[in-house]
Design a protein around this nucleic acid. Structure first.
Length: 446
RNA sequence: GGCGGCAUGGCCAAGUGGUAAGGCAGGGGUCUGCAACACCCUUAUCCCCAGUUCGAAUCUGGGUGCCGCCUCCA
């Protein structure tokens, strides 16, 4: 398949270094708050990529970290008077709840920063030994001028960056663009002992250390949101490659932002939706379908109205599954094969889930027409991680009794009464009664 | 100031040289006791200007508008 590689600024054929094994590292969340729809997008996209690579026959090892020590965590912990670890564990659990609802398969490993302090210290030491990092008042900084390729990923030029650099309060740095590998502890902050004094790791170093620890010096795919390209990923590359002397990642894959009213979501603008609040209104698969309807590299301008529209689209998927047609293609229709082929062509082309979903709906139409072949559809939906369960519910006795009452009324041609019962079930139980050839179907109002 | 992205029907969104996927919403039908579901029909020349080409939404140049990164951030 082809993947857009940020490093080369173009799509490239994906070739893992030692097929069929594929190593994939995706930057995880800093666990100090609830996840929002932007996080959802990133992890849905990479889950999708992971599923698709597996489908292609690769043996994917997927690592996604938790940043469980940093300024925001320390601040929040102080604010709540709660131990850092208690705080982060709570949000890790919340994270998994959200991801489960979105149908995201678990990564193989979820390393935590605090469990890799030694690996980080080793890496920092080797950077100092090589003369690309230096100690300054208990901090250890990376000297960006020592790494020739600095800026290659983000397309930035050191001189330009310096010209536009904003004021940095850290006077210990030789160059404003140098970044901190190890941060001296301030009073009252959590710390670890180190050869450089008590302190804690800088943000960037953890991903390098954890990625190399679990996946080796060179990983096949490194992913994350577009906002991580600079400086986070740029810095990861610098420190990793200086440390190991080897390329850090072959393919850099970045997903676009979720925006609200065309502006990036941010806490300061207070224009974000948490996954949990959206899940109170829409199901996980609907959310996932919504996210995958836009190509992963494009900005996605989020709106509740848009989500509601996709909710309707999802109902279409449900109703074709509800119809209960044979899973196999039992007609002479060869369109299934060509649709399936188109689906894979779309997915092969830089994970074009938007185009793939177009084909999914073509297939829905086809299934409704020839009344078979649901199995093909379900297989493709599984690749996208979109689960479609039959919407038929276990009815309460009360509802079942009403349905029976309505059946009798209908039989007696008392349609007025039958309609009244249908309305009653809708308003009291939120259930939609549909008459089909096989009897009554009962499903939630969407 | 530097770098990058985007602009497709009422809304969302694919499509990177051969005469515009798909979803939602709307209109008209078929089916249905009525609905619902489903199916059929129906609604665009792709921000503007110039150019390259037999042919451009798709390439080039110039505009206009919007957004992002350069600072924590998926």
């Amino acid at each position: 398949m082809q993947l857009y590689n940020t490093l080369q600024r173009k799509k490239e054929v994906f070739v893992p270094q030692s097929a069929p094994d594929v190593s994939m590292y995706v930057c995880g969340v800093t666990v100090y708050d609830q996840c929002h729809i932007g996080h959802a997008r990133a992890y849905v996209v990479f889950d999708c990529l992971r599923r698709y690579l597996s489908h292609l026959g690769y043996n994917v090892t997927y690592v996604q970290n938790f940043t469980d020590i940093d300024d925001k965590i320390i601040n929040r912990s102080a604010q709540l008077g709660e131990d850092c670890q208690v705080l982060t564990e709570r949000y890790i659990q919340a994270y998994f709840e959200d991801m489960d609802a979105l149908g995201i398969q678990r990564a193989n490993i979820y390393p935590k920063a605090t469990q890799h302090i030694n690996e980080m210290l080793d890496l920092i030491q080797s950077l100092i030994d090589k003369g690309v990092a230096y100690e300054a008042q208990g901090d250890v900084c990376f000297d960006v001028t020592q790494y020739d390729s600095y800026g290659a990923l983000s397309g930035k030029i050191l001189e330009d960056l310096e010209a536009g650099a904003r004021v940095d309060l850290n006077q210990n740095k030789r160059n404003p663009l140098d970044f901190v590998l190890w941060k001296a502890a301030k009073p009252g902050e959590p710390f670890w002992d180190s050869p450089f004094g008590k302190g804690r790791p800088g943000w960037h170093i953890e991903c390098s250390a954890m990625a190399m620890c679990h996946l080796g010096h060179t990983i096949d795919i490194h992913g994350g949101g577009q906002d991580l390209v600079f400086p986070h990923h740029e810095n990861e590359i610098a420190q990793s490659e200086c440390g190991s002397g080897k390329p850090f990642a072959n393919y850099w894959v970045h997903n676009g932002f979720v925006t609200i009213k065309d502006e990036k979501m941010s806490k300061s603008k207070n224009n974000f939706y948490t996954i949990k609040e959206l899940l109170s209104q829409f199901s996980g698969p609907v959310l996932r379908l919504y996210l995958l309807q836009t190509h992963y590299r494009h900005p996605l301008n989020f709106s509740i109205e848009g989500l509601a529209a996709v909710n309707q689209a999802y109902a279409r998927l449900q109703s074709v599954v509800d119809a209960g047609y044979p899973l196999d293609v039992v007609s002479e229709n060869t369109s299934f094969e060509s649709l399936e082929a188109s689906f894979f062509t779309a997915m092969d082309d830089d994970l074009n889930t938007a185009a793939a979903l177009g084909i999914i709906f073509d297939m829905v139409k086809l299934i409704n027409k020839c009344q078979c072949g649901t199995g093909v559809l379900l297989r493709l939906l599984t690749l996208l991680g979109i689960s479609v369960r039959p919407s038929d519910l276990d009815q309460s006795d009360e509802v079942a009794a009403l349905i029976e009452e309505r059946r009798v009324a209908k039989k007696n041609k008392d349609f007025q009464k039958a309609d009244a019962i249908r309305d009653q079930i809708r308003s009291e139980f939120g259930l939609l009664i549909e008459d089909t050839a096989d009897g009554v179907r009962c499903k939630p109002v969407s």
